[in-house]
Amino acid sequence: MKTDIVLAGVGGQGILSIATILGSAALKENLYVKQAEVHGMSQRGGDVQSNLRLSSDPIASDLIPQGGADLIVSLEPMEALRYLPWLKTGGTVVTNTAPFVNIPDYPAHEALMAELDALPRVVAFDMDAAAKEVATVRSSNMVLLGACAPFTGIETEKIEDAIRAIFGRKGQAMVDANLAAFRFGLDKAKNL
């Protein structure tokens, strides 16, 4: 088993929680994990990414080679496209389609959607709207985690266990909201 994932988004959106949950689920499975992330200056509303590598064999590099990622998982549509050169032939893009516009020259939404739709394997929908509907505005990242779960090579139940473990401290309501968001994303990905 070996899954290489590029996680993408805008600073503050919460991609690192996705990495933490997948990482702890993988640790429980006795898998090897490497996860490179960005701190410091890049966090202030700039683009952020994290390379997450899960494998049953030892992992050499902390960074995924170009053309090596099985998955691009993004909380923002333009940020998903930023990492296309890292996508493996036959790899999948799972992305939120709600744009995060904090720059004056942000591209036209229709053009971004057209480029995403043209990709061979893509799961894309408005995860902000979904999160608002089934849980809370802040849980778009859990919808995304659900939507990418079938492609990670980790059993869904193990990811749910990790969600329970990580959000358990913050109370049952928090766990339930995050699980609802996760399951919504999961169903959506299965039915697309």
Partner: peptide, 14 residues
């Protein structure tokens, strides 16, 4: 590997 997207623009920190 796929080519880089031409639509993507810089998103500097603020």
């Amino acid at each position: 590997a796929p080519e880089a997207s031409r639509q993507v623009v810089r998103r500097p920190p603020a």
